[in-house]
């Protein structure tokens, strides 16, 4: 039986490992499990946008399944709360703020906040700023990078260049800050 074979342990012949599994960009699960995600519609949208070919398959499957599928589902219906909760993503305003803070009498540092709202690794970003401006740069808080020296004006060009998803309009200038 072919089905029996499917569960057999051991590498299958004619398959090269590692297998590349396509994951959904919305729910991160393999595409075939999207339908069990509460935000299936969003998954579909993602699929349509990124993998139109797979989307067609899902659509065809959906239509032919409805008639037969419902009957099947009835047989294996179960009670209880089997609802998967979605991880709530905090959808704050996506914005990067840059400001200048004085340091001593005539020196200043640049404070960058809000980079993590764009899912950027702060450690990497700090390293990049340090290398770019040849200065010290460190992660100082939950969502804060301090760059030594006044590089605020340069940041408006550098950030969109490095991370294309951040447009210059997303960067706000808070001006000078008191320490």
């Amino acid at each position: 039986m072919a089905e029996e074979n499917r569960l057999r342990i051991g590498p299958k012949e004619g398959v090269t490992y590692p297998i590349q599994v396509v994951y959904c960009g919305n729910c991160t699960m393999p595409i075939e499990y999207c339908e069990y995600y509460p935000e299936y519609d969003r998954c579909k949208q993602w699929l349509e946008k990124n993998l139109p070919r797979e989307f067609e398959k899902v659509k065809i499957g959906d239509n032919s399944d409805t008639a037969i599928g419902e009957e099947e589902k009835k047989r294996q219906k179960r009670g209880g709360k089997g609802i998967i909760k979605t991880k709530k993503k905090e959808e704050g305003p996506k914005q990067v703020c840059v400001s200048r803070a004085p340091r001593g009498k005539k020196k200043s540092v640049t404070v960058v906040t809000g980079l993590s709202t764009f899912d950027i690794d702060l450690k990497v970003a700090a390293k990049f700023f340090g290398q770019r401006f040849a200065c010290g740069s460190s992660v100082t808080g939950d969502d804060e990078i301090v760059i030594q020296g006044d590089v605020k004006d340069d940041l408006f060009d550098v950030i969109p260049e490095k991370w294309s998803e951040i447009d210059e309009d997303f960067i706000e200038d808070l001006g000078d800050q008191k320490r």
Binding site: V21, E72, Q76
Partner: peptide, 19 residues
Amino acid sequence: HKYPFFLPMQQVDKGAIRF
């Protein structure tokens, strides 16, 4: 997912997936 062969597999029915 990359190397699915090295664990013994058990298959559950459709109704169990969401749980």
